[in-house]
Simulated scan of single mutants.
Amino acid sequence: METPEIEKSKVHITVEIIEYVPNSVVIKTILKKSTGNISVMSFDAGEGLTEKTTPFDTYAQIIEGTAKIVIDGESHELMTGQSIIIPAHAPNCIKPNGRFKMILTVIKSGYD
């Protein structure tokens, strides 16, 4: 089931858009367009995402906690307030490192 976007023209506290759910990864769409999307995600302790590749660059921002993001075999430890661009077509995964929340932004247009 597709979650609706958050309400427009309303102030939001980003870290409060999504809650932790025990033993789960939760994803909520902030904005979804044909040219890209923005999602906020929460990861309970011990939860992560398996290795994948995407055809577009992805901007990952940690908004609470810490996360380990592995890009093309290189591990990056990110803390609250830090971000990284995951390049298109690069194998990547998110490994458990306690509870954390992050925003993922994917821009699909104008790709070379």
Rank of each mutant, 00 (worst) to 15 (best):
R99E: 15
K33H: 15
S9M: 14
K10S: 08
T3G: 14
T54F: 14
M102W: 03
Q82D: 07
T29F: 15
A67K: 06
G98F: 03
K32I: 05
E51T: 00
G81S: 00
S39N: 09
H76G: 09
A45R: 03
Y111W: 14
F56L: 03
I13V: 10
P4D: 12
T14R: 04
I103V: 13
E51P: 00
V70F: 01
I103M: 10
S109Q: 14
G98R: 10
N92I: 01
G81P: 01
K95I: 14
T58K: 09
D44M: 00
S24Q: 03
P96S: 08
E2G: 13
F56Y: 10
A90G: 07
S75V: 12
T14E: 10
E7D: 14
A67E: 01
V26N: 01
M79C: 07
T50Q: 02
V40A: 03
L31F: 15
T29A: 13
E47N: 00
S39F: 09
V70M: 07
C93E: 11
V21L: 03
P96H: 06
M102N: 07
N92K: 05
G46L: 00
E77S: 13
K68F: 06
S34G: 13
P87S: 08
E5V: 15
F43Y: 01
I85F: 15
V26P: 04
S24K: 02
A88I: 03
K28V: 02
M41F: 02
A88G: 06
I18S: 02
A60S: 11
K52S: 05
D72Y: 11
T53R: 10
I107Y: 13
E19A: 08
G73L: 08
